[in-house]
Design a protein around this nucleic acid. Structure first.
Lengths: 244, 244
DNA sequence: CGTGTTATTGACCAACATCAAACTTAGTGG
DNA sequence: CCACTAAGTTTGATGTTGGTCAATAACACG
């Protein structure tokens, strides 16, 4: 698994920046305990003060928060190579939770290991800082979607985002994408009801943009889907424009 | 003005963390050109590649993005001491704009000055990193609001947030706060229409929680306002709980 | 004292939520 | 191989929040 970890992490970092030669050695210092999580299992919980960050090795993970009304807001999705809670390195108390959406494997990287890497190699530190800034850029884009776009545009947009990120990490290509999330997950991410998501996906299918099956989507017309989603991948700040 | 800059910046950093003695010297390296901006004037524009960051000295500033439909989404408000575009240090192309809401003064700090500070004093770098992470935490909280809270709760929430941040920077206290933003600004920040904001603020007043006048609000019942806004300041990750 | 900006009010409407029931699919055990 | 179950999706009926449009009112400023 150790090889996989560094391979995934390298791929992730290369998708958002350049790894200087000196940083490659530092990168190999990254290690931690590997743990398996079941579908819907919490990985880190709101209010906790973890002493480690986690990196996704396999599966599909989300950050979310439960509101007093009992509703859930999902704030991001994460793919293999991502470090969803890198922020806990400097924000000691979690202000949201992290959970697996499907059975997933993650490495638990102690904070002191991360800090050691960041101190030994500032270039790598800056790349990680950049990663958290991209994280924030995605939050801003979601805010825009939830605040000002219709359900139809919003759903097309978030699907475009996930697809582009999968491609950038070279996890999947081709028109068919394994997307292990339910319509209720999409609803909770976009501030909609599952019912309305169902209807709207139906509409996207009716317009011939994509085909939805539980567990996967097939893109039929990529250009028109991007257009429908008002999607410009610039906010993802990826290296090459993998969005072509 | 130079004194003010360092004083404001120190206050800001002290509100979110601890400045180690070694960092104090580094802090004094911070400098740049001071510029005045009129109300509604853009400071940095979407798509630009600035070679500097900006710090607010006086006034009130927001980050926003215009959508293809001509609507505006405001993504954050910023007070004196804030560096709203610190991210441009590592994300070279702006994915949104920065504008003054009222006549404001900002320092333009060249990126190489910031990088120099960060390299000489990693502790200060980490504190700045922490600042961008808090930024992201605020975005998440706004996402939750826009996605899952009613207009009434949302407005109360954002008012609480601004008040707590003003108090933390010791810019204002007492029950009356100078808040130089219009109801249209609030609407664009929360994904509402100005009409509905007007009605809802009226409702908040009717319930005796606050008094709104263009340019200022007076808090009549702080505890009840926090409750109405489902407000827990923890996500601001401030040092002392200034929210009491 | 006009003039522009911001706030308020009313009438009407659309997007989306909620509730409830039916349907589809995959997995499980007999 | 066939019930049986559980999770997820679909559909219909109905309700509500908040949007849009348009007119009026309240200020602030020169």
């Amino acid at each position: 698994v150790a090889n996989t970890i560094h391979e995934l992490f390298t791929r992730k970092l290369e998708s958002i920046g350049t790894i200087v030669p000196a940083a490659r050695d530092c990168l190999s210092l990254l290690h931690g305990e590997v743990r398996h999580f079941d579908a819907h299992q919490d990985i880190v919980v709101d209010g906790q003060r973890p002493h480690y960050c986690t990196m996704v090795i396999s599966g599909f993970v989300c950050r979310y928060k439960m509101l007093s009304a009992g509703t859930r807001q999902i704030m991001s999705f994460h793919l293999p190579g991502d470090i969803p809670d890198l922020q806990s390195l400097f924000l000691k108390t979690m202000d949201h939770s992290l959970a697996a959406l499907v059975p997933s494997e993650l490495v638990l990287i102690p904070h002191r290991v991360m800090l050691d890497i960041v101190q030994r190699c500032p270039e790598l530190g800056h790349l990680l800082w950049r990663d958290t800034l991209i994280d924030a850029a995605v939050f801003r884009e979601w805010m825009i979607g939830i605040g000002r776009r219709t359900a139809y545009v919003r759903i097309a947009h978030v699907l475009c985002e996930i697809i582009v990120r999968m491609r950038a990490l070279r996890l999947q290509d081709g028109p068919r994408f394994d997307l292990p999330i339910t319509q209720t997950d999409i609803a909770d991410a976009l501030g909609l009801s599952n019912v309305h998501v169902s209807r709207t996906i139906r509409e996207l299918q009716g317009n011939g943009l994509l085909q939805y099956r539980p567990g996967s989507i097939t893109v039929l017309e990529w250009e028109r889907l991007k257009e429908a989603g008002d999607f410009d991948p610039m906010y993802l700040h990826l290296n090459r424009s993998e969005a072509a």
